[in-house]
Amino acid sequence: MVTYILCLMLFCVGLYCVLRKRNLIKIIIGIGIMGYAVNLFIILAGYRAQSRAPIYANDQIVARMVDPLPQAMVMTSIVLELSVTLILIAIAIRIYEKYGTFDITKINKLKG
């Protein structure tokens, strides 16, 4: 149970960063931290005590393997996070070229 709460505390650190920082790069970093925490939470939900990786070997039996389905899902999620980070960085660099700042309180000119 403590493990789940620690994982959600990591999520809260990312959430604080997204909500309270003014720098665009810091906000992107916060989104990354939240993604890490969610991936770890899904893997924790599929973990089973005293079991081994879901790979067949000579002395391996099915009842002592961890759940393979969350691992397959999280593998997709990790790659999607990379592409989200890629697009966010591209948008941030473009905004910096246009406004000359990363401060989100100064990026307020809708015209042009």
């Binding site: 691992q71 593998m75 990790i78 980070t85 890629l86 960085i89 660099i93």
Partner: peptide, 26 residues
């Protein structure tokens, strides 16, 4: 947590996103 495939994948993706993020730290 017994997920070796994910460990490898996370390492590779982490290095790639680090390289991309360094580009933006002007």
């Amino acid at each position: 947590l017994k997920a070796p495939d994910l460990a490898i994948m996370q390492l590779v993706v982490e290095i790639m996103s680090l390289v991309i993020l360094v580009r933006a730290t002007m």
